[in-house]
Design a protein around this nucleic acid. Structure first.
Lengths: 194, 194
DNA sequence: TTGAGCATACGCGACGTCTCGTCTAGAGAC
DNA sequence: GTCTCTAGACGAGACGTCGCGTATGCTCAA
């Protein structure tokens, strides 16, 4: 009568293959066509899966996207910030690798899609900045900069990370050219010795 | 045979009443229900107008939103930055009036809707930062701060404006509490004498 | 024998196009 | 001036399509 400690019960267990196929298809279609144009039926067909199998496990399109994000399936690269001792140089290098992706038309579309998804779904929003490495990597690197005396002790590192990410987003939403140059100028100002 | 220089032609001219009813209905529904849930058919019904009258003049939902933005129908308040001579105080006051709107649940939803619309439609993106007064007012006030010697001469005022706006957006997308406190801390850091 | 899985039908709502009939306002003849 | 003529805007809504989320079989593995 009692379930075992491991949580066993009668009947088959959730198919890892189906889960993986669904998430992979979601990521593929999301990157290929953007958030609008992403449909549950399209995902089901692409994954070779019944619609109900998706609805059984995910309540919404947003939840699907959020899980792809945490699985690292939407932003395959892990943007970590190098540590050479020179804060400005390291941050600029991080920025370069982020922008190298985001400045392609495909990357710009990807970012806008992520923003659209985040605006619509709270769960996606929660994971957005983390997935771009802003929380884990950039803020940490800035904090190290404070320890090294290269940044003011009262600098709000977390907020500066969000400010950089936010600037990228604004530039992207307003379809500015030369995002890279502008961003470099901004971080140079933000990180400049005070 | 030739049309007159004024571009006259036979037949009735575009109805200003219909245009106004449509834009007013769009703004009303946008603010009431958000960008998703905003439908052309709903707008037509709300405005007491045929669908075709909308499709005749606007190619997309985004174009409709963009026109509401430039008409000042979505963000009725014009957030201009005061000039007291004290840069930090003025910027914080501007921030306060912006956040007073954005921190209500309704305002937060409005901002997320604007971001979603901007992510989906380039035309909306073009007008987003302008409508929040970031371009016209904040950047100008920062520039005046440089003239007054209260901000570094090399400060990229336009970018700082986008950084503040971007931070607001990121905080909003990630559903952070205490946006106001965080933002105040950020601008205090950005505007601090160097 | 239970429940995950695939497949598919269903009602619903919104899409964007199209076609009605009505109405309006400039153009051209008188 | 007045009186048609006509292009085109307008409200209304039907149309086919698409995707939604739900419901119902049926198969198969644990």
């Amino acid at each position: 009568m009692n379930e075992q400690a491991s949580g066993h019960r009668a009947g088959p267990v959730r198919s890892a293959a189906a889960r993986d196929a669904i998430l992979a298809a979601t990521a593929r279609l999301f990157q290929g066509q953007g958030y609008d144009h992403l449909t549950i039926e399209g995902i089901a067909k692409e994954a070779g899966v019944g619609k109900q199998t998706i609805y059984r496990w995910w309540p919404s399109r947003g939840a699907l996207i959020a899980e792809c994000l945490t699985d690292g399936r939407l932003i395959p690269i892990d943007f970590d910030v190098p540590y050479s001792g020179d804060l400005l140089r390291d941050v600029e290098e991080w920025l370069g690798s982020v922008l190298a992706i985001l400045e392609t038309p495909h990357g710009a579309m990807l970012l806008r899609s992520l923003v659209a998804a985040a605006a619509e779904d709270a769960e996606v929003g929660d994971h957005l900045s983390a997935s771009l490495g802003v929380d884990r990597h950039l803020a940490e690197r800035l904090a190290a900069g404070i320890r090294d005396g290269q940044l003011a002790a009262d600098a709000p590192v977390e907020l500066l990370g969000h400010a950089v990410l936010g600037t990228i987003i604004v530039q992207s939403l307003t379809r500015r050219p030369d995002v890279a140059g502008a961003l470099r100028e901004l971080v140079r100002y933000l990180v400049a010795a005070r």
